[in-house]
Amino acid sequence: MSENKLKVESLSAWFYEKQVLNQVSLDFPDKKVIAIIGPSGCGKTTFIRCLNRMHELTPGAKVKGRVVLDGKDIYTEMDAMEVRRKIGMVFQKPNPFPNMSIYDNVVAGLKLMGIRDKNLLDKVVESKLREVGLWDEVSDDLKRSGAQLSGGQQQRLCIARALATDPEVLLMDEPTSSLDPSSTAKIESLVRVLKNHATVIIITHNVQQAARVSDYTAFLYLGDLIEFGETKKVFESPKNPLTEKYVTGRFG
Protein backbone atom coordinates (compact mmCIF):
# COMPACT_ATOMS: atom_id res chain seq x y z
CA MET A 1 0.00 0.00 0.00
CA SER A 2 1.34 3.39 -0.98
CA GLU A 3 1.83 6.07 1.62
CA ASN A 4 -1.04 8.24 2.74
CA LYS A 5 -1.62 11.54 1.01
CA LEU A 6 -4.36 12.85 3.23
CA LYS A 7 -5.08 11.79 6.78
CA VAL A 8 -8.37 12.60 8.47
CA GLU A 9 -8.44 12.32 12.26
CA SER A 10 -11.73 12.36 14.16
CA LEU A 11 -13.28 15.01 11.96
CA SER A 12 -16.62 16.43 13.08
CA ALA A 13 -18.61 19.14 11.35
CA TRP A 14 -21.59 21.29 12.28
CA PHE A 15 -24.05 23.69 10.73
CA TYR A 16 -24.89 25.90 13.69
CA GLU A 17 -25.96 23.47 16.43
CA LYS A 18 -26.59 20.59 14.07
CA GLN A 19 -23.79 18.05 13.89
CA VAL A 20 -23.58 16.39 10.45
CA LEU A 21 -20.26 14.53 10.74
CA ASN A 22 -19.28 12.47 13.78
CA GLN A 23 -15.60 11.87 14.41
CA VAL A 24 -14.71 10.52 11.00
CA SER A 25 -11.18 9.10 10.76
CA LEU A 26 -9.65 7.67 7.63
CA ASP A 27 -6.50 7.81 5.53
CA PHE A 28 -6.51 8.48 1.81
CA PRO A 29 -3.68 6.64 0.05
CA ASP A 30 -1.66 8.54 -2.54
CA LYS A 31 -2.49 8.24 -6.24
CA LYS A 32 -5.64 6.19 -5.78
CA VAL A 33 -9.29 6.76 -6.46
CA ILE A 34 -11.47 6.76 -3.38
CA ALA A 35 -15.23 6.69 -3.71
CA ILE A 36 -17.49 8.18 -1.03
CA ILE A 37 -20.91 6.61 -1.02
CA GLY A 38 -23.94 6.89 1.19
CA PRO A 39 -27.59 7.91 1.14
CA SER A 40 -28.64 11.48 0.41
CA GLY A 41 -28.06 13.85 3.30
CA CYS A 42 -25.54 11.60 5.07
CA GLY A 43 -22.81 14.23 4.95
CA LYS A 44 -20.77 13.32 1.87
CA THR A 45 -20.61 16.85 0.49
CA THR A 46 -19.93 18.31 3.92
CA PHE A 47 -17.16 15.77 4.43
CA ILE A 48 -15.22 16.60 1.28
CA ARG A 49 -15.78 20.32 1.82
CA CYS A 50 -13.91 19.92 5.09
CA LEU A 51 -10.96 18.50 3.17
CA ASN A 52 -10.24 21.72 1.27
CA ARG A 53 -11.57 24.18 3.84
CA MET A 54 -14.66 25.09 1.81
CA HIS A 55 -16.94 24.15 4.69
CA GLU A 56 -15.86 27.20 6.68
CA LEU A 57 -17.31 29.51 4.00
CA THR A 58 -20.83 28.44 4.90
CA PRO A 59 -22.58 30.55 7.55
CA GLY A 60 -22.81 28.68 10.84
CA ALA A 61 -20.21 26.12 9.84
CA LYS A 62 -17.87 24.61 12.43
CA VAL A 63 -15.18 21.93 12.16
CA LYS A 64 -13.27 19.92 14.74
CA GLY A 65 -10.53 17.36 14.24
CA ARG A 66 -7.49 17.22 12.01
CA VAL A 67 -6.95 16.95 8.27
CA VAL A 68 -3.32 16.38 7.36
CA LEU A 69 -1.96 16.82 3.85
CA ASP A 70 1.57 15.47 3.35
CA GLY A 71 2.24 15.78 7.06
CA LYS A 72 0.85 19.30 7.44
CA ASP A 73 -2.38 20.12 9.23
CA ILE A 74 -4.46 22.06 6.69
CA TYR A 75 -6.30 23.96 9.43
CA THR A 76 -3.36 25.04 11.57
CA GLU A 77 -0.27 24.82 9.40
CA MET A 78 -1.53 26.04 6.01
CA ASP A 79 -3.69 28.92 4.90
CA ALA A 80 -6.96 28.21 3.13
CA MET A 81 -5.76 29.56 -0.24
CA GLU A 82 -2.76 27.24 -0.26
CA VAL A 83 -4.92 24.26 0.70
CA ARG A 84 -7.40 24.96 -2.09
CA ARG A 85 -4.67 25.38 -4.69
CA LYS A 86 -3.36 21.91 -3.81
CA ILE A 87 -6.76 20.28 -3.38
CA GLY A 88 -9.02 21.00 -6.35
CA MET A 89 -12.78 20.62 -6.34
CA VAL A 90 -15.58 19.87 -8.75
CA PHE A 91 -18.97 20.83 -7.35
CA GLN A 92 -22.22 18.89 -7.30
CA LYS A 93 -23.87 21.52 -9.51
CA PRO A 94 -21.87 22.94 -12.43
CA ASN A 95 -20.76 26.49 -11.69
CA PRO A 96 -18.84 27.95 -14.64
CA PHE A 97 -18.14 31.68 -14.34
CA PRO A 98 -20.79 33.27 -16.58
CA ASN A 99 -18.81 36.45 -17.17
CA MET A 100 -15.86 34.50 -18.52
CA SER A 101 -15.32 32.76 -21.81
CA ILE A 102 -14.79 29.02 -22.01
CA TYR A 103 -11.09 29.71 -22.40
CA ASP A 104 -10.93 31.99 -19.36
CA ASN A 105 -12.90 29.52 -17.28
CA VAL A 106 -10.32 26.83 -17.91
CA VAL A 107 -7.35 29.05 -17.08
CA ALA A 108 -8.95 30.94 -14.17
CA GLY A 109 -6.86 29.04 -11.60
CA LEU A 110 -3.65 29.52 -13.55
CA LYS A 111 -4.28 33.24 -13.83
CA LEU A 112 -4.73 33.41 -10.07
CA MET A 113 -1.27 31.90 -9.80
CA GLY A 114 0.03 34.72 -11.97
CA ILE A 115 0.62 32.65 -15.10
CA ARG A 116 0.16 34.84 -18.18
CA ASP A 117 2.22 33.01 -20.82
CA LYS A 118 -0.17 32.80 -23.77
CA ASN A 119 1.41 29.71 -25.31
CA LEU A 120 1.28 27.82 -22.07
CA LEU A 121 -2.34 28.83 -21.42
CA ASP A 122 -3.35 27.82 -24.95
CA LYS A 123 -1.77 24.45 -24.44
CA VAL A 124 -3.44 23.88 -21.09
CA VAL A 125 -6.85 24.86 -22.50
CA GLU A 126 -6.59 22.41 -25.36
CA SER A 127 -5.19 19.51 -23.35
CA LYS A 128 -7.64 19.87 -20.44
CA LEU A 129 -10.65 20.30 -22.72
CA ARG A 130 -9.54 17.19 -24.58
CA GLU A 131 -9.17 15.26 -21.34
CA VAL A 132 -12.77 15.98 -20.38
CA GLY A 133 -13.99 15.31 -23.92
CA LEU A 134 -15.18 18.84 -24.56
CA TRP A 135 -12.61 20.03 -27.07
CA ASP A 136 -14.38 18.85 -30.21
CA GLU A 137 -17.62 20.44 -29.10
CA VAL A 138 -16.27 23.88 -28.23
CA SER A 139 -12.94 24.38 -30.01
CA ASP A 140 -14.52 26.45 -32.79
CA ASP A 141 -15.55 29.19 -30.37
CA LEU A 142 -13.62 29.34 -27.12
CA LYS A 143 -14.70 32.96 -26.62
CA ARG A 144 -18.28 31.98 -25.91
CA SER A 145 -19.49 32.45 -22.35
CA GLY A 146 -19.14 29.36 -20.19
CA ALA A 147 -22.78 29.78 -19.21
CA GLN A 148 -23.99 29.19 -22.77
CA LEU A 149 -23.08 25.52 -22.66
CA SER A 150 -25.48 22.72 -21.82
CA GLY A 151 -25.55 21.43 -18.25
CA GLY A 152 -23.36 18.45 -19.03
CA GLN A 153 -20.91 20.55 -21.02
CA GLN A 154 -20.76 23.02 -18.14
CA GLN A 155 -19.86 20.25 -15.73
CA ARG A 156 -17.08 19.02 -18.01
CA LEU A 157 -15.84 22.60 -18.30
CA CYS A 158 -15.73 22.79 -14.50
CA ILE A 159 -13.75 19.56 -14.37
CA ALA A 160 -11.30 21.00 -16.89
CA ARG A 161 -11.08 24.15 -14.77
CA ALA A 162 -10.24 22.11 -11.68
CA LEU A 163 -7.66 20.02 -13.58
CA ALA A 164 -5.89 23.01 -15.15
CA THR A 165 -3.77 23.69 -12.08
CA ASP A 166 -2.76 20.03 -11.71
CA PRO A 167 -3.99 19.67 -8.12
CA GLU A 168 -2.42 16.95 -5.98
CA VAL A 169 -5.81 15.91 -4.68
CA LEU A 170 -9.05 16.27 -6.62
CA LEU A 171 -12.42 16.29 -4.86
CA MET A 172 -15.34 15.49 -7.14
CA ASP A 173 -18.91 15.83 -5.88
CA GLU A 174 -21.09 13.62 -8.07
CA PRO A 175 -19.34 14.86 -11.20
CA THR A 176 -21.37 12.74 -13.58
CA SER A 177 -24.88 13.27 -12.22
CA SER A 178 -25.72 15.69 -15.05
CA LEU A 179 -23.94 13.79 -17.81
CA ASP A 180 -25.16 11.39 -20.48
CA PRO A 181 -23.77 7.83 -20.58
CA SER A 182 -21.06 8.56 -23.12
CA SER A 183 -19.71 11.63 -21.29
CA THR A 184 -19.99 9.69 -18.05
CA ALA A 185 -17.83 6.96 -19.54
CA LYS A 186 -15.31 9.59 -20.64
CA ILE A 187 -15.12 11.10 -17.16
CA GLU A 188 -14.80 7.67 -15.60
CA SER A 189 -11.85 6.77 -17.77
CA LEU A 190 -10.39 10.22 -17.10
CA VAL A 191 -10.61 9.51 -13.37
CA ARG A 192 -8.70 6.27 -13.89
CA VAL A 193 -5.97 8.17 -15.76
CA LEU A 194 -5.86 10.99 -13.22
CA LYS A 195 -4.71 8.73 -10.45
CA ASN A 196 -1.33 8.48 -12.18
CA HIS A 197 -0.55 11.90 -10.77
CA ALA A 198 -3.24 12.71 -8.21
CA THR A 199 -5.41 11.36 -5.47
CA VAL A 200 -9.02 11.46 -6.55
CA ILE A 201 -11.86 11.52 -4.03
CA ILE A 202 -15.18 11.08 -5.77
CA ILE A 203 -18.68 11.17 -4.34
CA THR A 204 -21.19 9.12 -6.21
CA HIS A 205 -24.78 8.01 -5.78
CA ASN A 206 -24.18 5.28 -8.25
CA VAL A 207 -22.66 2.25 -6.52
CA GLN A 208 -21.80 0.64 -9.84
CA GLN A 209 -19.76 3.71 -10.67
CA ALA A 210 -17.95 3.44 -7.35
CA ALA A 211 -17.18 -0.19 -8.15
CA ARG A 212 -15.99 0.70 -11.65
CA VAL A 213 -13.65 3.58 -10.89
CA SER A 214 -12.44 3.38 -7.32
CA ASP A 215 -9.66 1.54 -5.52
CA TYR A 216 -11.11 2.31 -2.10
CA THR A 217 -14.60 3.02 -0.94
CA ALA A 218 -15.90 4.83 2.12
CA PHE A 219 -19.49 4.38 3.18
CA LEU A 220 -21.02 7.20 5.20
CA TYR A 221 -24.32 6.96 6.99
CA LEU A 222 -25.91 9.75 9.05
CA GLY A 223 -22.56 11.46 9.52
CA ASP A 224 -20.75 8.29 10.64
CA LEU A 225 -18.10 6.47 8.67
CA ILE A 226 -19.53 2.98 8.62
CA GLU A 227 -16.96 1.26 6.50
CA PHE A 228 -13.77 2.03 4.62
CA GLY A 229 -11.56 -0.33 2.70
CA GLU A 230 -10.56 -1.62 -0.69
CA THR A 231 -13.49 -1.31 -3.02
CA LYS A 232 -13.41 -4.99 -3.86
CA LYS A 233 -13.70 -5.96 -0.22
CA VAL A 234 -16.35 -3.36 0.56
CA PHE A 235 -18.50 -4.65 -2.27
CA GLU A 236 -17.84 -8.37 -2.01
CA SER A 237 -17.49 -8.93 1.70
CA PRO A 238 -18.67 -5.87 3.62
CA LYS A 239 -18.07 -6.02 7.36
CA ASN A 240 -21.15 -4.06 8.28
CA PRO A 241 -24.67 -5.21 7.39
CA LEU A 242 -25.62 -1.56 6.61
CA THR A 243 -22.92 -1.42 3.96
CA GLU A 244 -24.11 -4.64 2.45
CA LYS A 245 -27.65 -3.36 2.32
CA TYR A 246 -26.54 -0.13 0.67
CA VAL A 247 -24.25 -1.60 -1.97
CA THR A 248 -26.76 -4.22 -2.95
CA GLY A 249 -29.46 -1.59 -3.33
CA ARG A 250 -31.71 -2.94 -0.58
CA PHE A 251 -31.47 0.17 1.50
CA GLY A 252 -34.28 1.86 3.38
Binding site: L57, N95, L112
Partner: peptide, 27 residues
Protein backbone atom coordinates in the same frame (compact mmCIF):
# COMPACT_ATOMS: atom_id res chain seq x y z
CA UNK B 1 -23.90 37.23 -6.27
CA UNK B 2 -24.61 33.49 -6.39
CA UNK B 3 -22.77 31.54 -3.70
CA UNK B 4 -21.78 28.71 -6.10
CA UNK B 5 -19.88 31.24 -8.24
CA UNK B 6 -18.04 32.67 -5.27
CA UNK B 7 -17.23 29.17 -4.08
CA UNK B 8 -16.02 28.17 -7.54
CA UNK B 9 -13.48 30.97 -7.38
CA UNK B 10 -12.51 30.25 -3.77
CA UNK B 11 -11.97 26.60 -4.65
CA UNK B 12 -9.30 27.63 -7.14
CA UNK B 13 -7.34 29.19 -4.29
CA UNK B 14 -8.54 32.76 -4.73
CA UNK B 15 -8.25 35.30 -1.95
CA UNK B 16 -11.31 37.23 -0.86
CA UNK B 17 -10.26 40.22 -2.95
CA UNK B 18 -9.74 38.01 -6.01
CA UNK B 19 -13.25 36.65 -5.57
CA UNK B 20 -14.60 40.19 -5.38
CA UNK B 21 -12.65 41.24 -8.46
CA UNK B 22 -13.31 38.17 -10.61
CA UNK B 23 -16.81 37.19 -9.55
CA UNK B 24 -18.64 39.87 -7.59
CA UNK B 25 -17.70 42.90 -9.70
CA UNK B 26 -18.47 41.30 -13.08
CA UNK B 27 -21.75 40.01 -11.70
Amino acid sequence: TPMPLREGMFALGATKWEVIKNVVFPF
